[in-house]
């Protein structure tokens, strides 16, 4: 007998009595009018730098003022207008070993924890939001939901081969529980929230 059959057989023989899935699946949320503020607060608590912008082009101006060399910026969001643009998939992420900033779009934000959903559909390569020194996410204010329950109700996680919730720059507290921002992923993260005035 294969291990597969052996395991399944023993699981079947030993499994406990039937227990139904919970029927109660609604939970308290954050009212729509408070979501933007809550998202900003959660993301800042997670170490993010949040900027409200009226349109995407302003982000390009912001980057121009704060970062001088466009060749170390990879921009994947249309209309930002500053930095290199990736127009084709890149199979080897190691190409970005020296990248300073990646500008990436997120299609959904979660107010309760400041996390933003990023999928490979918006990335030239999966490693991009991890390998850059500084990640800049762009998200539309309308796309912020209250809780993770609402996030999963809105998403089809299997529609993409890879998707991730990102909540702030990478961090660790493995040495004496001292929080250090910048572990293996980005050391800084900006979130540009586009909200037309």
């Amino acid at each position: 007998m294969s291990s597969r059959e052996k395991i399944l057989q023993q699981v079947k023989a030993n499994k406990p009595p039937m227990s139904p899935l919970p029927t109660q699946t609604t939970f308290a949320s954050i009212p729509p009018e408070e979501r933007l503020t809550a998202f900003i607060k959660s993301n800042e608590n997670a170490g993010g730098i949040v900027c409200l912008v009226p349109d995407v082009a302003i982000i390009g101006n912001y980057l121009k003022v704060n970062f001088t060399s466009p060749e170390r910026i990879l921009n994947t969001v249309q209309g930002v207008g500053f930095g290199l643009e990736a127009d084709a998939p890149i199979t080897d992420g190691r190409a970005f070993g020296n990248l300073e900033i990646a500008v990436v779009e997120s299609l959904l934000g979660v107010a309760e924890n400041g996390a933003a959903w990023v999928t490979e559909d918006n990335l030239p390569t999966r490693v991009l939001p991890f390998i850059c020194e500084h990640l800049a996410l762009v998200i539309h204010a309308d796309n912020i939901v209250g809780t993770m329950h609402e996030a999963y109700a809105a998403l089809n996680v299997a529609a993409t081969g890879y998707g991730t919730f990102i909540a702030g720059p990478s961090r660790t507290a493995d040495i004496e529980q001292s929080l250090v921002i910048g572990a293996h992923g980005p050391k800084r993260m900006h979130v540009f929230i586009v909200q037309p005035f």
Partner: peptide, 9 residues
Amino acid sequence: QPITTYSSH
């Protein structure tokens, strides 16, 4: 933390 920094699917 309200969520880990990365939750990758």
